[in-house]
Amino acid sequence: MAEFRITDTVDITDVVCPVTFVKAKVALEELEEGEILSIHMNDGEPVQNVPRSIKEEGHRVLKLIHNDDGTYDLIVQKTEA
């Protein structure tokens, strides 16, 4: 993760679809263009859907990190549509 200058993080492991994406979207909204958000999410539905939805919004997915505990961190750069 050290290669990215992460501005903010958001934990979406406490919510389920579609609030997973909604919570990530709200966190991205608070960032400036070009800033980077790390989204902490569970395996399964979140990791299948959230990265795709984030891409559809026009943001840049930089990396998906698979953690030892089975969770994921999605590194996203905010890009204005």
């Binding site: 990215f4 200058r5 992460i6 903010d8 993080t9 709200v26 966190a27 608070e30 790390s38």
Partner: peptide
């Protein structure tokens, strides 16, 4: 990376 928890609390 710096975890800026305070920033998300705003959200």
């Amino acid at each position: 990376p710096v975890l800026r928890a305070a920033s998300f609390e705003r959200n």
